[in-house]
């Protein structure tokens, strides 16, 4: 599934990072616990999280993830946006809940 398709499925908007609409995403993971992300997310995955702290972006960069989605319409902190711009990591915000976001992406064929 392309990053652009994910954006549409989640009615999300990109708030920082490189525009990469054609980037192919095969897997996703959802967590607020960053150690879980580091322990289990495979490289190239999409991260869905409610943690809008810069750590979410740093963890995603370290784990070589493809992009990050903040759920529940949470506004990222300024430092988070800066961290995303520095690493180029595409950052999205959706108004949907974590549950609803995962459900939609799963239904659209994305797996964890």
């Amino acid at each position: 599934m392309r990053l652009q398709d994910i954006k549409v499925q989640l009615e999300a908007e990109q708030v920082a990072g490189s525009p990469r609409p054609e980037l192919e995403i095969k897997e996703a993971c959802a967590a607020d616990l960053m150690s879980d992300v580091l322990a289990s997310a495979r490289p190239g995955s999409l991260l869905l999280t409610g943690l809008t702290h810069p750590q979410a972006v740093r963890v995603a960069a370290l784990a070589s993830l493809a992009a990050v989605v903040f759920v529940q319409g949470k506004e990222p902190l300024r430092d988070t946006l800066v961290a995303a711009e520095e690493s180029g990591l595409p950052l999205f915000v959706t108004q949907l809940s974590l549950f609803e976001s995962c459900g939609r992406l799963y239904q659209a064929g994305l797996r964890g």
Binding site: M34, D36, L38, A39, T49, L51, H53
Partner: peptide, 15 residues
């Protein structure tokens, strides 16, 4: 509260 301290740090390093 910030998504850390779940007692997985050393395990992650090990793995």
């Amino acid at each position: 509260e910030m998504g850390f301290g779940a007692g997985m740090g050393l395990n992650n390093i090990q793995s």
